Amino acid sequence: MADYEVLRVFCGPGGEHGNELGVVRDGAAVPDEAQRQAFARELGFSETVFVDDPEQGAIDIYTPGLRLPFAGHPCVGVAWLLGADRLVTAAGTVRVRHEGEFTRIEARPEWAPARTTRQYGSAAEVAALEVPPPGEWIYAWAWQDEPAGTVRARAFPGRGDGVEEDEATGAAALLLTAELRRDLTITQGRGSQLVTAVRDGGFIEVGGRVRRA
């Protein structure tokens, strides 16, 4: 097996929680798509990233079952690991900025894979949800404090690939921000935190803390 590192992306304020991410720094060690898909399936993280050119920030992203042109938590994690100011994904070039403990990326909503955002009446209702059967990709959310822009969310990929719930999901947060057209602070899963902002030119910013697992 190729060498890889494990990061936790979108950690809580104390560095806790976050969604685990596998990163293969030497993408050439796993050279073709079939091998990369098998490697991502073996690791079993919600996403695994292969770095094809660290200087240019070129990356390739996989779930256990499919290749993704763009995903949020892999981009935030790899940008932190490489100290990059941009990443090149199959969907397009992702702008990056580093601000204190936060790494933030900018991307277009249309780059994100399709997700169904489903609003609930309270944060407690979201917290009590059972994992639904495989089917559509659901981002369940509710306002914690609507005037303050704080949200409670959970993510259910519904892919049947062994990942029943995503601890923190940047692409879904990006889509919700675009839908609501306002900046958000999202608590997802067990207590991971994502911060988002609406930017000029149709871009949405998604950021968070990254730690080594």
Rank of each mutant, 00 (worst) to 15 (best):
V151P: 00
V151Y: 00
V151M: 04
R152S: 08
R152K: 14
R152C: 02
A153Q: 03
A153I: 02
A153M: 08
R154I: 04
R154M: 08
A155Y: 11
A155H: 13
A155E: 04
F156T: 09
F156I: 00
P157L: 08
P157I: 02
P157R: 04
G158M: 06
R159G: 00
R159L: 15
R159I: 07
G160E: 10
G160N: 12
G160A: 13
G160K: 11
D161H: 08
G162A: 14
G162N: 12
G162Y: 11
G162C: 13
G162R: 11
V163L: 09
V163Q: 03
V163S: 03
E164V: 15
E164H: 15
E164T: 14
E164N: 15
E165V: 12
E165R: 07
D166Y: 08
D166F: 09
D166H: 03
D166P: 01
D166N: 11
D166I: 08
E167S: 13
E167K: 03
E167M: 14
A168S: 14
A168Q: 10
A168H: 04
A168Y: 12
A168M: 05
A168R: 10
T169C: 13
T169G: 00
G170S: 11
G170T: 07
A171M: 03
A171T: 13
A171C: 14
A171W: 00
A172F: 08
A172V: 08
A172C: 14
A172M: 04
A173W: 00
A173I: 03
A173Q: 00
A173D: 06
A173G: 14
L175D: 04
L175P: 09
L175S: 12
L176E: 09
L176D: 06
T177K: 06
T177C: 13
T177M: 06
T177E: 00
T177W: 01
T177Q: 05
T177R: 00
A178N: 14
A178I: 06
A178Q: 09
A178D: 15
E179G: 01
E179I: 06
E179R: 15
E179F: 07
E179Y: 05
E179S: 12
L180Y: 08
L180I: 02
L180K: 00
R181V: 11
R181Q: 15
R181H: 14
R182E: 01
R182G: 05
R182T: 08
